[in-house]
């Protein structure tokens, strides 16, 4: 008999019972899915993006379905930091699963302030830094698509927080490895990727954009192969762990991410379709490890067999 494989994962000082989380913005703040999903079987809960003050987000339509995908321009509505701590954290503290809070700000200082305050808050185990949401911009660019502003955000958050910090990388950059390395150099404990891919859809009869915000971010199965390539490049550039997301629907999609270098994964859009996808992914990873005679997730991480150097086609 093969022993039960070790499914645990480490993100800085944080240890997870399994490597499968739920992605920010696709799981609310925890209670929304509590009737359907066994929260104690999740590796971690990553909550919807939080900034200092309450925000309203964009007008509807906020999402549109496209072939094998979903474009969203929710626009980061939320209860603000105090609202989150008051309304949701008591519930989350009662769940024995690590809570990763996705944070954002309109300025570098705001990122630092949210980080400092959550660092001092019980029940928050790590911070994921959302610099890559297509719906937040500094001037005309998201913070996460320019190396200089990306560095400033990560350095500022690092200076103000001792809990693990996880910058979340944007997919729409020319050199993802450079962002991964910058995150590591600025003291990040892990990186996560990918955020949604900037996208747009038009109603050809009315010639109007299908989203009130005109543009949004594509997620779901449509972006999975893009994410696999970016995770491979980013994870290969750093020693800190990589949390991979983008279009996971089945255990195979998650295993693909682990093989190209991810230490953990997050399920996003698929939860809307099948709320228990994360559970199925955990079960599928375990079964795969047994079938391949592997003792741990760590043995699978970065085990891609390539006969040649990466140079594309």
């Amino acid at each position: 008999m093969t022993p039960t494989p070790d499914l645990s994962a480490r993100i800085g000082s944080l240890s997870l019972r399994n490597p499968v989380m739920v992605a920010s913005g696709t799981f609310g703040y925890g209670p929304e899915y509590a009737e359907l999903v066994d929260l104690e079987r999740l590796g971690a809960i990553v909550v919807k993006g939080i900034c200092l003050e309450p925000t309203r987000g964009n007008p509807p339509p906020r999402t549109v379905e496209t072939p094998s995908g979903l474009i969203n321009a929710i626009g980061l509505p939320g209860p603000g930091l105090e609202g989150f701590v008051r309304e949701y954290l008591p519930f989350l503290r009662s769940v024995p699963t690590p809570v990763i809070v996705n944070i954002w700000g309109r300025t570098v200082e705001e990122y630092g302030e949210v980080a400092a305050r959550l660092d001092a808050t019980d029940g928050v185990h790590a911070l994921e830094i959302n610099v890559s949401c297509p719906n937040i911009r500094e001037g005309s660019h998201a913070f996460g698509v320019r190396l200089d502003s990306f560095r400033r955000v990560v350095e500022t958050v690092r200076a103000r927080a001792s809990k693990p910090i996880i910058p979340k990388l944007a997919p729409n950059v020319s050199d993802i490895a450079a962002f991964a390395r910058a995150a590591e150099e600025c003291g990040a404990d892990a990186i996560s990727l990918i955020n949604s891919v900037p996208a747009m859809a038009v109603d050809i009869e009315t010639r109007r954009p299908k989203l009130a915000n005109v543009i949004g971010g594509l997620t779901g199965p449509a972006i999975h192969p893009i994410a696999v390539k970016l995770v491979w490049e980013a994870a290969g550039a750093v020693r800190i762990p990589t949390i991979a997301m983008g279009g996971i629907v089945s255990p195979a999609d998650a295993i693909e991410f682990l093989i190209v270098g991810a230490a953990a994964v997050a399920v996003g859009t698929a939860t809307f379709v099948e709320p228990r996808t994360a559970h199925a992914v955990v079960d599928g990873i375990r079964e795969y490890l047994v079938r391949h005679g592997l003792r741990s997730v760590a043995e699978l991480t970065g085990s891609l067999r390539t006969g040649r150097d990466p140079c594309g086609g």
């Binding site: 509807p60 939860t271 809307f272």
Partner: peptide, 16 residues
């Protein structure tokens, strides 16, 4: 009637 994503209150698609 609003278009929906998750149906359970998590995605914030269906706002009025």
């Amino acid at each position: 009637d609003r278009s929906m994503g998750c149906g359970v209150g998590a995605c914030l698609t269906c706002v009025q």
